[in-house]
């Protein structure tokens, strides 16, 4: 379990994390999303014990993570931009991780060999970005982590390898109850794998929900109302657009309650469409003045 409690971090007077609190339940796959500069990578570097917070508390399995090797040995971290010793080969790096991480499993490393199309004698510097990412997955999963922290993990991977990587992660979670915190801008992919989602903006957490709850709590409705009829005032409309008589509204609330309220207007046509994570992200941040702007060039 990862608990981030009221964490504050500033860089030269700029608050990168502003009283941030996150809770990642044990065994969850938690998707951390947010616009560029929201503070996702910063909080990840705190959770992995690289940075020290100015205020607040970061606990992994109930213990502070900073300078705590006992906890850090159970955490594996794949950054957006992975680092390896340039002259080292994959085998050298494997030996390195084996030497510094007590949980490293050579057996697991050997088992995973088939999943990654990599030559162990290749120098790290000769590998492409995607191949380096593959290698990073290979090493990190071999460390048998209880907590896996991923920052843009599949960035640079081809579609086949993306599926391969997610498949390995899902299997690990299913078999070992690994907790996964993943930050990504690929919301369609996150939607497929995450069971929890947190949306960050400007160093704060806007919302944190179970993904199904999140999707249940916001609805997209297409309807056509008779002349003279308007939408009920009690609806919490996040977004409203219309094309001729057909109106599209994004409404916060449970779908059944919304349709009941709309039914009072005797719509000529009404259809409730499930919202994707990407749409939820866009409409939630729209309320935070982060929306797609119509720019005329």
């Amino acid at each position: 379990m990862i608990e981030v409690r009221n964490v504050v971090k500033s860089f030269d007077g700029f608050n990168a994390l502003d009283d941030l609190s996150i809770n990642v339940p044990t065994g969850a796959i938690y998707g951390l999303v947010g616009p560029n500069g929201a503070g996702k990578s910063t909080i990840i570097r705190h959770i992995t014990g690289i940075f020290r917070q100015d205020k607040g508390e970061i606990l992994v399995n109930g213990e502070p993570v900073f300078e705590n090797p006992r906890i850090k040995k159970d955490i594996a971290y794949i950054p957006d931009d992975v680092f390896f010793f340039t002259q080292a080969t994959i085998r050298d790096m494997m030996k390195f991780y084996k030497g510094v991480c007590p949980n490293f499993s050579t057996e697991r490393f050997e088992k995973l060999r088939a999943a990654f199309d990599l030559n162990e004698n290749s120098k790290m510097r000769s590998l492409s970005k995607g191949m380096q990412k593959q290698a990073a997955f290979w090493f990190m999963v071999s460390m048998c982590p209880k907590v896996l922290v991923l920052d843009e993990p599949v960035d640079g991977l081809d579609p086949v390898m993306r599926r391969q990587v997610w498949s390995i992660l899902m299997a690990d979670v299913a078999e070992n109850g690994t907790t996964v915190l993943v930050s990504s801008h690929n919301l369609r992919e996150l939607e497929d794998v995450c069971d929890h989602v947190g949306i960050m903006n400007k160093g704060k957490l806007l919302l944190e929900r179970n993904l199904s709850e999140l999707q249940d709590n916001i609805s997209k409705v297409q309807l056509a109302l008779p002349d003279g009829k308007t939408l009920p005032d009690e609806l919490r409309v996040l977004h409203h657009s219309s094309t001729g008589r057909l109106q599209t509204i994004i409404v916060r609330g449970i779908a059944e309650e919304i349709t009941n309220k709309l039914a009072t207007c005797e719509p000529l046509f009404m259809d409730v469409i499930p919202l994707s994570l990407e749409e939820i992200f866009i409409y939630e941040l729209g309320g935070e003045h982060y929306e797609v702007k119509d720019i005329i060039l």
Binding site: R45, T48, G49, I50, E67, P69, R70, K72, K73, I75, Y77, P79, D81, V82, F83, F84, V100, C101, P102
Partner: peptide, 14 residues
């Protein structure tokens, strides 16, 4: 280097 710092400081060593 921010990348090497991330790698070294995330290791389970004080």
């Amino acid at each position: 280097n921010a990348r090497s710092v991330s790698m070294m400081c995330s290791l389970p060593i004080k």
